[in-house]
C-alpha cells in the first residue's frame, strides 16, 4: 500500500497522508503535488550517504566564515 510499483511512495499512500495532515485534499492538487514529493524524497534520501557522525551543525565551517561573524 505504501510502496508503489517502482519501490517509491505509492500514490494511494501519499493521497491518504496528505489528507490526514490537512495539507491538501483537492484531487488536482494532489496529482500535481505527488511527483514533487517523490522528487523531494529521492533528494532527501541521497543525503543519508553523507557521514555526519561527530559533526556539530553549529560548527563555523557550516558557513566557512572567516571569523567575527
Amino acid at each position: 500500500m505504501t510502496t508503489g510499483a517502482d519501490g517509491g511512495l505509492s500514490k494511494e499512500a501519499f493521497f491518504w497522508y496528505a489528507r490526514e495532515i490537512g495539507v491538501a485534499s483537492d484531487l488536482h492538487l494532489l496529482e500535481a503535488l505527488y511527483p514533487e514529493v517523490r522528487t523531494l524524497l529521492r533528494n532527501v534520501e541521497s543525503l543519508w550517504a553523507i557521514d555526519t557522525s561527530g559533526i556539530d551543525a553549529n560548527d563555523p565551517d557550516a558557513y566557512l566564515r572567516g571569523g567575527g561573524a
Binding site: I21, V23, L29, A32, I55, A57, D61, A62
Partner: peptide, 30 residues
C-alpha cells in the same frame, strides 16, 4: 505553492542532517 507544499512531506531528520552535512562540505572546501 506546490514546490513549497512538498516541504510538509519531508522526514523530520532530513533538515538537521542536511545542516550537519553542510559542515562536511564546508570542511572539504576549506
Amino acid at each position: 505553492g506546490i514546490r513549497m507544499l512538498s516541504g510538509f512531506f519531508m522526514p523530520a531528520p532530513s533538515y538537521p542532517h542536511a545542516m550537519r552535512a553542510r559542515v562536511v562540505l564546508g570542511r572539504a572546501l576549506k
